[in-house]
Amino acid sequence: MDLKSISVFFALMLWQSADSEMLTSVDPPTNLQVIDPGYLGPLRMCWQAPTSLANKKLCVRYMLSYCNVNSTNCKRVITKQLEYTDGFNFNEEIIVKVRTLVKDQCKSAMELQSDWVEIIYRPPLEGHADSKVKDLQCIVYNLEYMECLWQDGMAVPQTINYTLYYWHEDLEQTMQCNNYIKHHGRTVGCHFQSDDLIEFTDFNICINGSLEMEPVRPAYFTLQLQDLVKAAAPAEVKLTLSSADTISIQWEPPAGKIKPHCLKYELQFRGKSSDWEAKVISEGVTSTTLNVTTNTIYCVHVRAAVNMFCADDSFWSDWSSVHCLTVRSEGGDNVTIQLNVAKLVVLIALMSITLILTLSTIYCWIRWKRLIAKKKLNRLLNDNIKDIKKCIHIDY
């Protein structure tokens, strides 16, 4: 290393050392803002760097903290950027704080932290709190459509008119429900087609409305649709006796868009006089076996749900139809055949006796009729002979 390089190296070291000694504190960011883009949940938080750090060769980062004002679990993010976007619960006020973090070198362990600068963002919450809807429940049926239903707010008149808006990341702007669900003339829900549905991202909903005299408090909801799926019931449940004491059960996955490997199943079974017992099958298979006792009728039905590998939560489907199978003891078929043959013999004997009695009755009736007819004929002949004799006696 030549003398010139050594001189430059020591000059840089001295400059950095002098700069570090001079920097004993750091100013917080300036012009902190919270901007609502109108997507019913996401907010853009932005700020500017402290002017005191302009033209300084330092490692500057920012610590951002944000949450709803009544929450004790605030999120913290460290970033080099001057803005950050995340989703929020608009039903409460939101507090956002940011401060500056400075190191003379990014790998250094020593770091200066500024004071916090904070702002409170107040979403539009006009209207009385009791006027907003309650108990929103949304169900995605077999990934084919979704229905969201809600209850009216407390002490609101029947003339209230609720309106639902929604947004997700595939939409350029918020959309209004195109197919409201009505009950006795009142809006109680919204029907979404499959094209409106998107999984694994925030699905933001706002339900507000209007009254004649005052506004209605808006209600905000953020959903994860993959956790709200209700599958269709399994189809083609089949029961077969695979051995003397084992039933094999097979079924088909529900038809639709849900991938077979995303499904778990619950099977319920019972004997003729026992209660239902349950068996959960979570590996996505569509068959199982049951150990059974002989000379018993077993009944089975199956339902499905999205498993833990494809969603954090789900709804169970309706039960399939009930299918039953009679389990007989070994040799039970022969015993049944023998019993059936004995019944057949008895039946034939009874039919033979009945036939003989019927024929005998008919024969006796015919004999009786012939006897009566013969007696009548003899009486008629005798009367004719007497008349003839009288005629002959008169002539002589």
Rank of each mutant, 00 (worst) to 15 (best):
L241T: 03
D395M: 11
E93C: 02
E252V: 08
N73V: 15
V188W: 09
V34R: 00
V306D: 00
V346G: 00
V117D: 05
F221K: 08
L40R: 06
R61A: 07
T79L: 14
F221S: 05
W368F: 11
E330N: 11
V133H: 04
P218F: 10
G153C: 10
T326W: 12
Y220R: 01
I160H: 08
F309G: 03
P215K: 03
I297V: 14
R328E: 06
G284L: 03
E147H: 07
I348W: 01
M154K: 15
E236K: 12
L53K: 08
E92W: 12
Y220D: 01
L380M: 13
A129M: 13
E118W: 15
C74D: 07
R76V: 15
K390A: 01
L347P: 00
N31R: 13
E236G: 06
F203L: 04
S131H: 10
T174H: 09
S352E: 06
A255C: 07
P50F: 13
V60D: 03
L171S: 06
W316I: 09
M22Q: 11
D383V: 04
S7C: 06
T51Y: 11
K272S: 15
T288V: 02
M13F: 14
G41C: 06
S243T: 13
G127M: 05
L223K: 10
L53R: 09
M110S: 12
R99V: 05
K389Q: 11
I388W: 15
I78L: 07
W150K: 02
F221C: 01
T51V: 14
R44S: 11
V34F: 12
H261W: 10
I207Q: 01
D196Y: 04
E283C: 08
I348A: 00
L228C: 04
C190Y: 05
C138H: 08
V306C: 01
K386L: 08
